[in-house]
Nucleic acid binder design. Structure first.
Lengths: 131, 131
DNA sequence: CCTTGACCTTCCAATGATGGGAAGGTCTAG
DNA sequence: CTAGACCTTCCCATCATTGGAAGGTCAAGG
């Protein structure tokens, strides 16, 4: 099948399918005589794998490792678990950072009366700038 | 003072100070005879404002708006509040998305025994790929 | 006076994931 | 035969930040 149908079936845009091939996340696709890329069921499964992994926030480099393990029937699940856990920790750190920002902001927004007057705790806080 | 000292005092790297000037977040700095940028107390305050706003996750474009309001003594605090609240909502959405990823991942990591065997609920889940 | 090292200047490139678009080739239905 | 819906490759933009190259300037010390 053509790249367009592969995109439709996998949920990965044609643009990104080409991109994943360009960065060696996927092996070069087979080509038809007209140089169109040709995909089969197997490739659709790999594309869906990538899409699902992206939705879980894995980077393309991590997905490369996960794909290799997925293909490797002799893998150790500990390898997979290590990658997932590292990513999970990363996520948790980023969530914590953003939650801290959001907490401060919520506080400031609540403190601001938000009317026509210029006094504003939000600007006061940012302008004070002490960390 | 030179850009290096301004960087030290504000916590914004010299590189980024030049960048903020280039994208018109800051007005062109005064120049000495040797074409070195020259900063005073006022600029340090603006740089600290930017640094603090970045730490709260505001984009440079939002910071541009906030800076304009900060400079405008006749501002309405409602304007500031609107910007902050929009950003807060954005943060909350992103946090929610990441928390959802993290929740799924935690579940999967817990379910994976993580030993030498190849069976792995993590790969199973990603490979199933149903949303 | 000259050198050294620490500054400063501008300009260009890369990051990571994704999308937009141009210029051109191919296929299919009418 | 033509229209339009595909496909190809290549370049560019996003966003904030960093790195580096090539070159000018300044202060201290020999």
């Amino acid at each position: 099948m053509n790249i367009g149908e592969a995109a439709r079936l996998s949920g990965v845009s044609a643009k990104m399918i080409r991109h994943y091939e360009a960065i060696d996340l996927l092996p070069p696709a087979a080509r038809r005589d007209n140089s169109y890329r040709d995909y089969g069921k197997h490739e659709i499964f790999e594309l869906r794998f990538i899409r699902r992994a992206r939705k879980l926030g894995f980077s393309t480099s991590e997905i490369g490792d996960l794909l290799a393990l997925w293909r490797d029937k002799g893998r150790s699940s500990s390898e997979v678990r290590r990658i997932a856990q590292a990513h999970l920790q990363d996520l948790e750190i980023r969530i914590e950072e953003m939650a801290s920002m959001a907490g401060t902001l919520r506080h400031l927004v609540d403190a601001c009366h938000g009317d026509h007057r210029p006094d504003c705790p939000i600007l006061d806080d940012i302008g004070r700038g002490d960390e």
